[in-house]
Amino acid sequence: MTCMELRVENLTVSRGGLPLLQGVRFCVASGQALILRGPNGIGKTTLLRTVAGLQPAVSGDVSVDLDEVCYAAHLDGLKTTLSVEENLRFWADVFGTDDVETALERLNLNELRTRHAGTLSSGQKRRLGLARLLVTGRMIWILDEPTVSLDAASVALFADVVRAHLARGGIALLTTHIELGLEDAQVLELNPFEAKGGANDSADEAFL
């Protein structure tokens, strides 16, 4: 089993030139999950995008193997005119894997496989979006509000999927407002890291 970790040191992230979080530090080891919590607008999405390498950090370090990262945003990136299976098959091809069947199985999408993604309910779309995580075959999952619009049964299903992922030695970094029932997930409150007015790490610092 590969051993890996996701380590964030003294990270400052900003959005639109405005520092949101500063001095964030955490470390998630293989087989662990970390749940980020904090009120709306505190910068959870920005933090996740920075960790996933989509956005540069203002300062600080993110040490993570980007070739093992799989990022899932609010939006599922589904094509409405493709069927459920075609959507998954595409991502499997992009990531060079071939495990569409198990993914469909695990997220209970078998009956829907020929339906166009455009005709799915929002909960079903979400499940398809999560099935994508499985076909990528990557070990570090960065999930932004994965449980939005899922019903209780689907949340349990998703929790099982995450648990199995962790048991394989995977890492999960996620934000969520509901209780997932992941027994040994750590929780990180982001409130203490909220950037203060006097922060001097902003991108606009040069103008002050």
Partner: peptide, 17 residues
């Protein structure tokens, strides 16, 4: 431009504080 940018940066800072 520098002044406009500086003003925006200062205003943003006020909001944060």
């Amino acid at each position: 431009e520098i002044r406009a940018r500086r003003m925006r940066a200062l205003l943003a800072r006020e909001q944060v504080a």
